[in-house]
Nucleic acid binder design. Structure first.
Length: 206
DNA sequence: AATCCGAGCAACCGCGACTCA
DNA sequence: CTGAGTCGCGGTTGCTCGGAT
């Protein structure tokens, strides 16, 4: 028995949202809060899939969204976080108030990728493109309770990150602020060592 | 003026994770 | 423990718009 579709496709609108749909959704969530996305469209009088409503709210209608251009500080922070987390856009977005994962993902693909390539940096590995000396320990995508060494990670100059270390390694979950996130608590017993800077990275201190 | 093309971005799709009966 | 239902994430698609030809 397969999974049932998330909505009745023949009775749902697709594509761009109209002003009226936006107003319906916004008014409903203002009055009732973000609840069950599956039942929300019907309750709000929308001919939309719940998934579509959720996406529209998160990426466009939420009142705390910061519209407009990314600052240089945000650029560097995204690059730093991507070097640590990989394509974990939701985790990166969590560190950028007012920005959404979709927005950051689009921004990465259209702008930052090119920016890094212009700097001679591979946007996936964050290593210099003509580098022949390779540290084959890949930047891990697995962020849950992972203590990985992060030498060779590019740390930007505009934003510095506090560094929690244990021995010679750097704990990703601590450094990203997830040390006390529910049952994903990190047990590495890291201690705050210092603040990472490009100079320290270059000098091999981290 | 018409057409082409690439960039930017909103939205969709599929799947894994999570929750709960 | 198991499986159905739901949620959330990441990859991808496709539309729109502006600049180039």
């Amino acid at each position: 028995m397969g999974r049932s579709p998330c909505c009745e496709k023949e009775h749902t609108n697709k594509g761009a949202w109209t002003k009226e749909e936006d107003e319906h959704l916004m008014n409903y969530i203002k009055a009732n809060g973000e609840g069950c996305w599956r039942s929300l469209p019907k309750a709000a009088g929308l001919q939309r899939c719940g998934k579509s409503c959720r996406l529209r709210w998160i990426n466009y209608l939420r009142p705390d969204l910061k519209r407009g251009n990314f600052t240089d500080e945000e650029d560097e922070l995204i690059i730093n976080l991507h070097s640590l987390l990989g394509n974990k856009w939701s985790l990166i977005a969590a560190k950028l108030p007012g920005r959404t994962d979709n927005e950051i993902k689009n921004y990465w693909n259209t702008y930052i990728k090119r920016k890094l390539l212009n700097r001679g940096i591979d946007p996936q590995t964050h290593r210099t493109l003509n580098s022949t000396t390779t540290n084959t320990a890949a930047i891990t995508n697995n962020t849950t309770n992972t203590c990985a060494t992060t030498r060779n990670v590019v740390i930007g100059t505009a934003t510095s990150l506090p560094v929690f270390t244990k021995g010679g390694s750097v704990c990703l979950c601590y450094n990203l602020g997830f040390q006390n996130k529910g049952n994903q608590q990190c047990h590495c017993a890291m201690t705050l060592a210092t603040t990472a800077t490009a100079a320290m990275c270059n000098s091999g201190q981290i």
